[in-house]
Nucleic acid binder design. Structure first.
Lengths: 154, 154
DNA sequence: TTTGAAAAGGAAACTGG
DNA sequence: CCAGTTTCCTTTTCAAA
């Protein structure tokens, strides 16, 4: 795939993926460009959808999300409606950070963030397992997070 | 767990998790507080580590990371050194976005981002599978991303 | 596209209430 | 915690190359 980006764009994206509080002035200095050029490049990168959003990343342990689980879910029915309804319902649960439909042995992988094992258990029993089409759920729990990166290498 | 945060802090974090380009002035208006108060709250939230960093989230498909795989890795040896060395080596691979040590049937779950299946295959053969202690790798591929959130509910 | 410069607006630091 | 003020810095805009 050919990226529609030159070196300046790529460098800007690399920096902003790590630290989006960098000012245009700081980026201009790092990249030997004018402030106006940096400004225009970032405007285009947002307009064209390369940069989707700028967000604060929180320390999950400080906001009481100590337990991360990966839940592998297998459904009973596999019609388009069944899949779609599961996706809709599961997206409503605040514990669900991510939902992926998968190839292979499972239908979905969910990443669940809760405060502890008790809370996960309640989520599983009272929310996830009550969805009409859920057949089996296999849960894996994170012991430690070795690498956690939101930045794609460019 | 008792959070060390009042309602104003929580509202600020909710907003900044969604959009960190909001100005202090805008937040002050939304929360009916003074600009000075918002400024001081955010300073403390950063200082105390609630806000770890502010980053740009890119559209991965636009930067040629079309394939996401979850790779379940089982190791041969399970000594502290073996685990630690695997973690170190795997963190160096640019394709590895996340690495979790897990409970249950697998030792690690990796989230791998590559441009396509060929590239994943090369990564698996030439990088991951060459690590000395790797016993088995089971790969699951994302067909579609239904929910993808970096914001923890508060 | 890029640039420098000007205009507009926000952040930071401080006051006193 | 807030309103107001001053200073400084950044963003935004624009005409010209």
């Amino acid at each position: 795939m050919q990226l529609n980006l030159d070196n300046v764009d790529i460098e800007i994206l690399k920096f902003l993926q790590k630290d989006a509080t960098l000012t245009n002035k700081e980026l201009a200095f790092k990249l030997n460009k004018s402030i106006a050029t940096i400004h225009e490049r970032i405007r285009r990168l947002k307009e064209q959808g390369y940069i989707m959003r700028i967000v604060a990343i929180l320390d999950r342990k400080k906001v009481d999300r100590n337990l991360i689980a990966f839940s592998h879910v297998f459904l009973k029915a596999h019609t388009a409606e069944a899949l779609g309804e599961f996706e809709n319902e599961v997206a409503k649960f605040s514990e669900v950070m991510e939902c992926f439909q998968m190839t292979g042995a499972y239908d979905f992988i969910l990443r669940i963030a809760t405060s502890d094992m008790d809370t996960y258990h309640l989520f599983l029993r009272n929310k996830l397992a009550t969805l009409p089409n859920v057949s089996t759920v296999q849960s894996f729990f994170v012991l430690s997070e070795t690498k956690s990166d939101t930045a794609y290498p460019l």
